[in-house]
Simulated assay, not measured.
Amino acid sequence: MKSITLLLLMFFASETLALTMGDAINVAGRQRMLSQRITQSFILTGIQPENVRYQKQLRKCVAEFQVNLDNLLKMREASPLMRDLIDVREQWNTFKPVATGPVSKKNAAKLNDISITLLTAAHRYVGKLEKLANSSNAELVNISGRQRMLSQRIAKNYLAYYWQIDDGEALQNLYSDLAEYELMLKYLKESDINTDDILRKILKTEGHLEYASKGFDGDMTLKGDRLIFVITGTTDIMLRNMDEITRMYAKLLDTQDIAIR
């Protein structure tokens, strides 16, 4: 009984733990990514309804977005930006019922459209958090965090094109995102605050980007479900790499804040 009580106390303590500014930019940045990953998972569920993995992924991402939003709303240091965060919440309240509703091509197209509005609101909030932090390191947290979103939007746009739920722009948007991803990865690689670990992760991500691009360009002999598996798998690795890089940049930002104090 005592052990259960202790676990409950630890759980509630972790839920109310204050976010640092580095944490906040990281978490708020994940919301951008989740808006695209949820949409991607929804489409994948429609393409392969027998694959329970995508259904679990969809539920997990929806739950994470909600938890992240609740934690950001508790952050006192970012209270001047509350109006912007409430806007994110309002867009989420429109997005969530569709994301958790019946899966169909019609609903996938609707969710894809709404995801753009949610992403825009989330991105606006992250940008204002970066300015509030007033640190050059905050920009790196923001940019690397955006790379996570791009990896998932790249995959989402490919799936929208594959399932024919887009308005004809998905493939064009995909290549635009690939170009931006490559450009910003180069920008991060040239940062003079990079540690050896960060640089190593960036170089690995460059390799995965090149591999994914071959699939989009038709250089792979794979087709159909197998190509979907390879592309989503590769962009997921890109996501994980950039998530670790973002955490490292966030830690550098928090270390700088402590040093200034």
Results as ranks from 00 to 15, higher is better:
Met1Lys: 09
Lys2Thr: 09
Ser3Leu: 09
Thr5Ile: 10
Ala13His: 04
Leu17Phe: 11
Ala18Arg: 05
Met21Asn: 04
Ala24Arg: 01
Ala28Asp: 08
Met33Arg: 01
Ser41Trp: 02
Phe42Asp: 03
Ile47Gln: 01
Glu50Phe: 02
Glu50Arg: 05
Asn51Thr: 06
Val52Pro: 03
Tyr54Leu: 07
Tyr54Val: 07
Gln55Asn: 08
Gln55Glu: 14
Arg59Met: 14
Val62Arg: 08
Val62Pro: 10
Glu64Ile: 12
Val67Leu: 13
Leu69Asn: 12
Glu77Gln: 09
Glu77Trp: 02
Val88Trp: 00
Thr94Glu: 11
Lys96Ile: 11
Lys96Asp: 05
Pro97Ala: 06
Ala99Pro: 04
Ala109Phe: 02
Ser115Glu: 08
Leu118Arg: 03
Leu119Ser: 08
Arg124Lys: 15
Tyr125Asn: 12
Lys131Tyr: 13
Ala138Asp: 10
Glu139Trp: 07
Val141Trp: 00
Ile143Glu: 04
Gly145Met: 01
Met149Trp: 00
Leu159Phe: 01
Ala160Met: 11
Tyr161Val: 04
Ile165Pro: 02
Asp167Gly: 15
Glu169Pro: 01
Leu171Gly: 07
Leu174Arg: 06
Tyr181Thr: 10
Leu183Phe: 12
Met184Arg: 11
Lys186Trp: 04
Tyr187Gln: 10
Tyr187Met: 08
Lys189Met: 11
Lys189Ile: 08
Asp192Met: 08
Ile193Gly: 08
Thr195Asn: 06
Arg200Leu: 15
Ile202Asp: 04
Lys204Glu: 14
Lys204Leu: 14
Leu209Gln: 11
Leu209Asn: 08
Ala212Val: 15
Gly215Glu: 07
Thr221Gln: 13
Lys223Glu: 15
Leu227Val: 11
Thr232Cys: 05
Thr234Cys: 07
Thr235Met: 12
Met238Gln: 11
Asn241Lys: 08
Asp243Tyr: 00
Ile245Trp: 00
Ala250Ile: 00
Gln256Glu: 15
Asp257Asn: 06
